[in-house]
């Protein structure tokens, strides 16, 4: 700043709003309350079944993979982009990682593989995901193809590539040590899958909330032209963001390998929609510029609690998608109302 020529007579209130006041005004508080109310309702209806450590643990562990995808999706949607390819990139990266581990093991059977092989597998999985994300990013930011189209293409192509690599069937030998340690291991009652997902979420929240990368992410989503005019490297940022999402999809693929012990090629076809739904329920705007990782975390657990609760209290399974959809539409509607209220000024 060119401060030398100016003198200050400070009258603007520099006191920051209290934490409570900020929280109260935030969407996150309300979605968080919805989650707590849902949890309380199911707990009251079936305290013996729902309000147990086991239910809580399985809720967390079953959401871990989706949560990692959702953290990345939050970044992309805040840039007013979208990534439909995450589920397929997850499968592709998982296949690459599993095949690398098999390739390093005698006889192509990775079941007995040790820590070294697993570490290389992790790197390969994350790198494969990041590479696919990088490709998405280049096509979107450099070639200026709309993200919807690019990632729709990747959605099909990454799955096709995974099937090509495996001849179409799942890679079946996953190191037992990996399954024992990451898939089912726990420390002090906290499953390692959950710890890993929490670390990813915390890192994502830190990156988005406190760093220049995060600030640029909001700025680009809010007004890309304004960002460009103040000298932000919009193209580079978008490429990096999609690569980040890809890398997280790769990590999620590794977690899925550890948990299911197979590459689950025929699964994950709706991961993209689940992640988008979670992000949107969590208060991130599809128009970009607004959103938090914490909100997305809550957004992952609202459908998870709903579906688990419905099974536990014995509601007909057909109601589950209906309830989740209602929550989703309500979340988008609230975002619209909020925007309209703001823009009418």
């Amino acid at each position: 700043m060119s401060q030398s020529t100016l003198d200050y007579e400070s009258t603007v209130n520099t006191e920051q709003q209290s934490l409570g006041k900020r929280l109260f005004s935030a969407n996150t508080l309300w979605t968080g309350l919805v989650l707590l109310v849902l949890y309380a309702v199911f707990s009251i209806m079936r305290p013996d079944a729902f309000l147990t450590l086991f239910t809580f643990q399985t809720l967390l562990i079953e959401a871990a993979v989706l949560l990692v995808l959702t953290v990345g999706m939050t970044f992309v949607i805040i840039t007013s982009g979208i990534d439909l390819s995450v589920g397929s990139v997850l499968v592709f990266a998982g296949v690459v990682g599993a095949q690398v581990m098999e390739g390093m093991s005698p006889g192509g059977d990775a079941t007995g593989a040790g820590a070294g092989v697993i570490a290389v597998g992790l790197l390969a999985t994350v790198a494969a995901g990041a590479a696919w994300g990088l490709l998405n990013g280049l096509l979107i930011a450099k070639a200026k193809i709309p993200p919807l189209i690019v990632t729709l293409g990747s959605f099909g192509a990454a799955l096709g590539a995974a099937q090509l690599l495996t001849g179409g069937s799942d890679v079946r030998t996953v190191p037992a040590q990996l399954r024992d340690w990451l898939g089912f291991g726990q420390t002090a009652g906290v499953p390692h899958m959950v710890i890993l997902a929490a670390v990813v979420a915390l890192h994502g929240a830190w990156l988005l909330r406190t760093t220049r990368f995060g600030r640029n992410n909001y700025a680009i989503g809010s007004n890309a032209e304004a960002a460009r005019r103040v000298g932000i490297n919009v193209t580079g940022h978008l490429v990096a963001t999609y690569a980040y999402v890809g890398a997280l999809a790769g990590l999620a693929g590794f977690m899925s390998l550890a948990y299911f012990g197979t590459t689950t090629i025929s699964g994950h076809s709706t991961d993209n929609l689940n992640a988008i739904a979670a992000v949107v329920i969590g208060g991130t705007s599809l128009f970009g510029g607004v959103g938090t990782v914490l909100g997305s975390v809550i957004g992952v657990f609202i459908p998870a609690v709903l579906t688990k609760g419905f099974v536990v209290i014995g509601v007909q399974p057909y109601w589950q998608p209906i309830a989740v959809s209602i929550v989703l539409v309500a979340a988008v509607w609230l975002d619209q109302v909020r925007r309209r209220a703001r823009n009418s000024r």
């Binding site: 086991f54 689950t264 998870a304 099974v311």
Partner: peptide, 23 residues
């Protein structure tokens, strides 16, 4: 019966929920 949409992840959720509800 519970429907799983042919997704392993959903099947896992259904079984753990059933375990919670029916020890």
């Amino acid at each position: 019966q519970q429907y799983t949409d042919n997704e392993p992840a959903i099947a896992a959720q259904r079984v753990s929920a059933a375990l919670s509800a029916n020890p």
